[in-house]
Amino acid sequence: MGELVIGIILIIISITFYVTAGGFPALSDAPLQAGSFPQFIAVLLGFLSLIFVLIKAKELAGRKSGSTQESMGDKIRHFYEEHRLVLITLVSLVLYIILMQLIGFVITTIVFIVVTGYIIGPKKKKDLLILSAVAVVVTLSAFFFFENVLYVRFPSGLLF
């Protein structure tokens, strides 16, 4: 099922790229323009994805009849249990990236490591202490190394 969805999304992406590439300006009378190569690749990707979707759809149709029915609610619950940590970590990563611009690199990084590690790991006081110590050391050493050796300016945040 997932494979089918990926295939269909890829077909949509190919069509979007193909159409967009058609609108690129033609600057010279060269046989290949800025849009030609992308169009060629888009056709290739669309064609491959179409074959893939057809194969998978055929497989799925063949299997449907014999498979045991699992209720939709069970499926969703099962999926959530399996991917709970993935989803939580993804959300905290998104928040980390957004908040870094507002609050600054050092604070958000330390908070991100501690919070994410705490959610994933065992909820013990000793683990939390070690985790916090590691978070501070990693963050500060990375910060000072890149700021002083490579002259990278990390976001300092709007508040400071």
Binding site: T89, L93, Y96, I97, M100, Q101, T109, F112, I113, T116, G117, Y118, I120, G121, P122, D127, I130, L131, V134, A135, V138, T139, A142, F146, L150, V152, R153, F154, P155
Partner: peptide
């Protein structure tokens, strides 16, 4: 080394690595 320590730290290193490449948020 426990997973709960490894994962967030490597994620942070990925973010730093990406940012340092072009200095673009």
């Amino acid at each position: 080394v426990p997973v709960h320590m490894l994962v967030p730290i490597i994620l942070v290193l990925c973010v730093i690595g990406t940012f340092v490449l072009n200095n673009r948020l």
